[in-house]
């Protein structure tokens, strides 16, 4: 402090902020990857279904 008194230790506040930032930004990153993985899986399923249908149709003719 300016008058010579030592400043209190604010470590819990600092840790709370860094923890919160890690949780929010890390969470957003993980959520994005998890959603992307799920959506890609659905796209693959669509492709698979279409290939199966196309095979079935070619078998019919």
């Amino acid at each position: 402090m300016v008058d010579g008194t030592p400043t209190p230790d604010y470590t819990p506040y600092v840790m709370a902020v860094y923890g919160l930032a890690a949780l929010v930004y890390g969470g957003l990153t993980l959520l994005g990857h998890w959603r992307l993985k799920g959506l890609k899986q659905r796209l693959d399923d669509f492709g698979h279904d279409r290939r199966e249908r196309s095979d079935d149709n070619s078998g019919d003719t």
């Binding site: 402090m1 300016v2 400043t7 209190p8 230790d9 604010y10 470590t11 506040y13 600092v14 902020v17 860094y18 930032a21």
Partner: peptide, 27 residues
Amino acid sequence: GLWMSLAAPLDFQQGNSVRILYAHVPS
């Protein structure tokens, strides 16, 4: 950046609460 933030000197008025600003200001 995290290593530098935690190793930075203390502010003469704010003490180590100045480290909060390394996450607050960029955000």
